[in-house]
Amino acid sequence: MSIKMLVLSLTGQCNFACRYCYAAEHDRSMMSPETALAAVKLAADGGERFVIQFSGGEPLLNFDCLKAVVDYVHKEKLPAVLQLQTNGSLLTDKIAKYLYKNKVAIGVSLDGRPAVNDKLRLKKNGY
């Protein structure tokens, strides 16, 4: 049986403190590139197309690990679809260009209209 979707929770850390976040209960450590690549290799062993989704916490806090996986997928020409789920706050021009160039789809989590989003999505200082 092959793996169809691999979700890599790159870290439980986040730069926000959203009221509802399930990731607040996750381990705060950063996934190592070695662990991520071992999981990717296992998923790729099926030989079929599969999805890799970068998740967290805020996965861009562990961009080096994300980059290691993306670079490996392209170097090895794996049949993987790359996706990132982020709060969007850490996207810079440099990161966005890297993701675009390497065909990483970006999903930005929002909580509705601005008033609702701002009520639920708090920064670490409570605002």
Rank of each mutant, 00 (worst) to 15 (best):
G126C: 10
A44K: 05
L84Y: 02
P79Y: 08
H74P: 07
N125Y: 05
C18W: 07
S109K: 11
S29G: 10
T86P: 01
S29L: 10
S89V: 15
G46D: 03
K77R: 15
A17M: 15
R28N: 11
G107P: 04
G47Y: 14
I52D: 03
C18R: 01
Y127H: 13
D93A: 10
N87Y: 09
F50K: 06
A43C: 11
K67R: 14
K77L: 09
E25T: 08
L78T: 06
L60V: 01
V73H: 01
L91Y: 01
M5P: 01
L91H: 06
A68W: 08
Y22A: 14
G56R: 10
P59L: 03
L84A: 12
A39D: 00
I3Y: 05
L8V: 11
Y72T: 04
A115P: 03
L42G: 01
L60P: 11
D118I: 00
E58A: 08
K77S: 10
F63W: 14
G46Y: 04
G88W: 06
I52V: 13
A80K: 07
E34K: 11
S29K: 13
D93K: 14
Y100L: 10
N15F: 12
N125A: 15
T86A: 10
L90E: 04
T86R: 02
I3F: 09
V51N: 13
P59K: 00
T35Q: 11
G57P: 08
L10P: 05
C65M: 07
N62A: 15
D64Y: 12
N102Y: 01
R19K: 15
E34W: 06
Y98T: 11
N125F: 07
R19L: 13
L60S: 03
V69M: 10
T35V: 15
M1A: 12
L37E: 00
D27Q: 07
Y100C: 09
M1F: 15
V81I: 13
K75I: 08
P114F: 00
